[in-house]
Each structure stands twice: as structure tokens, then as C-alpha cells.
Computed example of a mutant assay.
Amino acid sequence: MGTGRRLLLAVVCGVAVAGVYAAQPVLGPMGHDLGVPERLTGWFVAAGQLGYLAGLVLLVPLGDVADRRWLISAHLALTAAGTGLTAAAPAAWAAFAGLAVAGLFAVVVQIAVACAASLSPPDERGRNIGVVTSGVVVGILGGRVLAGRLAEEWGWRSVYAVLAVLALALAALVPAALPADARSRQTYGRALASLAGLFRERLFLTRGLVALFLFASFGVLWSGMALPLSGAPWHLSEAQTGLFGLAGLAGALGAARAGRWADAGRADRVTVLALALLAASWLAIAQLPRSLWLLAAGVVVLDFAVQAVHVGNQHTLTAAHPDRASGVIGGHMVFYSLGSALGAAATTVAYTAGGWTTSSLLGAGCALAALAVAVLGGRRLYARRR
């Protein structure tokens, strides 16, 4: 697992996940162009998340069945098909379909993370997962910056056209760059049964519920923020809104650092502290109508906290199930996808009903729920070990 392969897998993750989140800074123009009311534009993001949810259940287990390098390549090619369909969409239904397809095959992210975990010695697993996961952060947040800029220059459709080209290029590169997959394999049916069995495990459910509330809070911010920023008093353009992704790139630092903390055995402690930071970040984010500087500070803290918890979760679960890394990561990400979809759909409704204050209360509530699950679940697991 050399530097070149780590970086390649990080880029794969970034491009794939950008197809799911690139709509966030351009919800306004997408909705206007395709005839979707403002209160329903959050469903552009939710469509990708629901496709992602289906892929986590149906496609990620293939990572424990097939050669991962060819599986990654195929998923990237099909992700390109979904983003290409979105770019050419003549109506809302086609855009929703394209985003759902892009989300379905964006689960290549989990296969890439599992590949990194399986190629890593135990004492470097957290570090390598952290580096690859940082590609997800750059894809989500840097993709917003790129999407805002492209949309302002050439329209929102250009965002998806560029992502389609990048995904196709990576699909051609991956088979030559990654090693042959010499693992012993299981059948698809057994992989699905193994995934179902995880949902009866206390550690898995605790980490999963933390992820659900964690990414619901994340989705509330990033799927709802463009609406108040485009209105009074700020009236920011798509490109200016996308620049807030630069503040969120602190999450990439959080992902890389959290991997080292996890390798040192501090994943549980870091999870609780990071969730407390997440809840506190909403105090600054709620000031959006009054201060962009406080908003930016809150975004930095929120994204750092989210990625620190996310990497800690993945490290803990893959260490507990080293023989089925793809399945356990895919199962865990079911909660992630549900949380992101719920946050994306709920925040536009909350904003329409009560403004940014209502959206902020929703985001903070999700963060506090994640903290409560982590504390109570951690105590029960500790008691069982004793």
C-alpha cells in the first residue's frame, strides 16, 4: 500500500462521492431549470443518497466476492453513466434518475476503503484508511467549490459532464495501478447473509446509529446552506457559496489525524469529544444571517468533527471484522446514507417553515442525539466486556 496507491484510491473516492454532493451549491439553478419548487430541491441530493443506500446493501458485498480492482473500475464507469445522464437531463425525472444511478455506484468508495484496509498491515490500517477517507472529504467539499465555479461559468450541467469524464479516466487507470486481488472469496449469498447478521451486533448498531445522526447533522448544513446564502442579506452566487467548501476541507485534516489516533487506541475517546464539538459548532453556524465569518468557523469545526468520528467508526469496525472489510463498511454506511438523505430532505423543509434558526436547531439536535448514543452505547459495551 504505497503512497501512489493510497493517493489513487483517495482520488477515486473523491470523484465518486462528488457526483452525490455536487448538487448542493447549485440546488437553486437546478430546480429553476427543471421546474422543481424550492422546498423540494433537497431531493436532488436525497435521490443520490437513496441510490447510495441501495448500493450499500446490494453492491458493496461484491467486494468480498469479486476482484476489487475490476469491481472499482466497473463502478466508476457506471458512475460516469449516471452523471452523464444528469448532465443531459431534459426534465426533472431524468435528473433524479441520473443522480440515483450515480449514487448507486458511488459505493465504489466503500470498496476502495476496504481495499486500503486489506492491503495495510495492522499498525498502519488507521493511517491508510484516514488518507483514503480524506479523498471523500475533498470530493464532498472541494467538489462544491468546483461545482459552484463551473455552474457560474457554464451552467450546472457542466458540473456533471466534468465528473463523468473524470470517472471514465479513473476507470481506465485503476486496473493497471492496483495489484491482483488474491484473497480467498465467498459467494454473494453468503456475503449478503453476513451483512444481515451484523445488524444483530451491539458494536455495529451503536456505531451505525452514531453515523446516522452524525451525517444527518452534516446533511442539514450542506444541503440547506445554499438557500439562505443566496437570499437576503448576502445574495451570494453559486461560485461564492461553493467557496465555503474550502472551510470544510479541515475535515480532510480530521480524517488523516483521526486514523493515527485510532491506531493509538483512542478511537472511543475521540468520538465523544468530536461529537461534543459537532454540537457546539451549530452555535456558530446558526449565526449565518448575521456573520459569514462565524459560519465559516462553524463549518471548519463541524467538518473536522464529522470526519474524526467517521474514520474512528471505520477503523473500529474493520479491526473487529478484518475478514469481511467490504461487508462491514458497506453495512455501516447504510446508516450514513440514511442520515444524509434524511438531513438533505428535512433541511429544506425546515428552512421553508422557520428559516435558518429552525434548520440550525435540527442540525444541533442530530448532533446531540449522536453524542447520546455514543456515550450510552460505549458504557454498555464496556460493561459487557467487564
Rank of each mutant, 00 (worst) to 15 (best):
D268C: 01
E124L: 11
W70Y: 14
V159E: 04
L376N: 12
G259Q: 12
R202K: 15
A196S: 15
V174Y: 02
S237F: 12
A216G: 14
F96S: 08
A66R: 13
R384S: 11
L56D: 12
L214E: 11
F218I: 10
F218C: 09
R266Q: 14
H310Y: 09
S237W: 11
L198K: 13
N128W: 03
D64V: 08
I329L: 15
A106F: 01
V109A: 07
G254N: 04
A276T: 12
A279G: 14
A66W: 13
R257P: 03
V60R: 13
V17C: 06
A18N: 06
Y382M: 15
L221M: 12
D181A: 03
L99M: 15
R202T: 15
A114P: 08
A280Y: 07
S360L: 04
V108S: 05
A372Q: 10
A147Y: 00
A252M: 11
L85G: 07
A308W: 05
L229C: 05
G197D: 09
L9V: 04
A97P: 08
V132Y: 11
A169N: 00
L205A: 05
V334Y: 00
P175G: 07
A319W: 00
N313T: 12
L273V: 14
P228T: 09
S73Q: 05
D64W: 12
M1D: 12
E152R: 06
L85C: 06
V270T: 13
A47H: 09
S134C: 10
T357R: 12
L368P: 08
A284D: 11
R69N: 03
P90S: 07
G189M: 05
R190E: 15
L76C: 04
R6P: 00
S158R: 11
H32S: 14
A66D: 01
L27H: 00
L203D: 08
Y336R: 06
D268G: 08
H310E: 07
A106R: 09
L205P: 02
A239C: 10
V15N: 02
Y351P: 00
G48D: 08
A151Y: 05
G2F: 01
A169E: 03
W261I: 08
T133K: 02
G31A: 05
T358F: 12
R183C: 04
A276F: 14
A23S: 15
G98P: 09
S134H: 09
V220M: 04
P121H: 07
P25K: 01
V299T: 14
G298N: 10
F304Q: 02
T358Y: 12
Q314C: 14
S120N: 10
L361G: 00
V60T: 15
G19L: 08
